[in-house]
Computed example of a mutant assay.
Amino acid sequence: MHQPPRRDRRLSRRMQPASTRRRAARLTVAGADVVLVGYFSAKERDFMTLMASAATALAARGARVVGQIVQRRGVSDGGAHKMGLPYSSRTLLSYGKVREVAAGCKQANADAAVFVASLTERQRRALTAILGCPAVSLSDVLADD
């Protein structure tokens, strides 16, 4: 027998309205203790300056940076063509570094983890669940002004 084609509902279940996605990313950093997390390619030589400017931008908005963690993507694992890619599409960082960030957030009793790199909605949800505090992109925090 011939069956009618099924409609794929997976995409409609996964996609949220844009207003919901933006609302989830918003975080008031004024008065919040945050851990600043950077993900940089080994080609990026001036990553400490970028971290310092991100910390300054957060401090200007009233946040207190209680910790800084950096993940560097080296050339030895995977070659130079993978240096711009994240270690994990789910969490951006390697598994060990995610555990280190989670421990740092817990130890500092941080209100949020602010990532210098942009996060996808999936990464944001996964990192928030793993870290135990909201994970947001620096660009989202700066855009809320």
Rank of each mutant, 00 (worst) to 15 (best):
R21Y: 03
R21L: 15
R21S: 14
R21I: 12
R22M: 05
R23A: 15
A24Y: 01
A25V: 01
R26G: 00
L27N: 01
L27Y: 00
L27E: 01
V29L: 01
V29R: 14
A30R: 15
A30L: 02
G31I: 00
G31D: 13
G31N: 00
G31K: 03
A32W: 04
A32H: 01
A32M: 10
V34D: 09
V34A: 02
V35W: 06
L36D: 09
L36T: 10
V37H: 00
V37S: 08
G38R: 04
Y39D: 04
S41N: 12
A42G: 13
A42Q: 06
K43D: 10
K43Y: 05
K43R: 06
K43A: 15
E44W: 03
E44P: 02
R45P: 05
R45S: 13
R45N: 11
D46Y: 05
F47Y: 15
T49L: 14
L50H: 13
L50F: 02
A52M: 11
S53P: 03
S53G: 00
A54N: 03
A54H: 09
A55L: 00
A57I: 02
L58E: 03
L58Y: 05
A60M: 03
A60C: 08
A60K: 14
A60Q: 10
R61T: 13
R61N: 04
G62C: 13
A63R: 03
A63Y: 02
R64K: 05
R64W: 00
R64P: 00
V65D: 00
V66M: 12
V66Q: 03
V66G: 01
G67S: 04
G67C: 01
G67Y: 03
I69E: 12
V70C: 14
Q71G: 06
Q71N: 11
R72K: 11
R73D: 10
R73G: 01
G74C: 09
G74Q: 04
V75T: 14
V75M: 11
S76H: 14
S76D: 06
S76N: 03
D77Q: 09
D77C: 05
D77G: 07
D77P: 08
G78Q: 00
A80L: 15
A80K: 01
A80G: 05
A80T: 09
H81E: 15
H81P: 07
H81I: 14
K82S: 15
K82Q: 08
M83K: 04
M83R: 05
G84C: 11
G84P: 07
L85I: 14
L85F: 12
L85Y: 08
L85M: 12
P86G: 13
Y87Q: 10
Y87C: 12
Y87K: 08
Y87W: 11
S88C: 07
S89L: 12
T91E: 14
T91Y: 13
L93N: 04
L93W: 07
L93V: 11
S94C: 07
S94P: 04
S94W: 04
Y95K: 11
Y95N: 09
Y95F: 10
G96W: 09
G96Q: 08
V98L: 14
R99C: 12
A103M: 08
A103P: 07
G104A: 09
G104R: 02
G104W: 10
K106A: 13
K106V: 06
A108G: 07
N109C: 02
N109D: 14
N109R: 15
N109K: 10
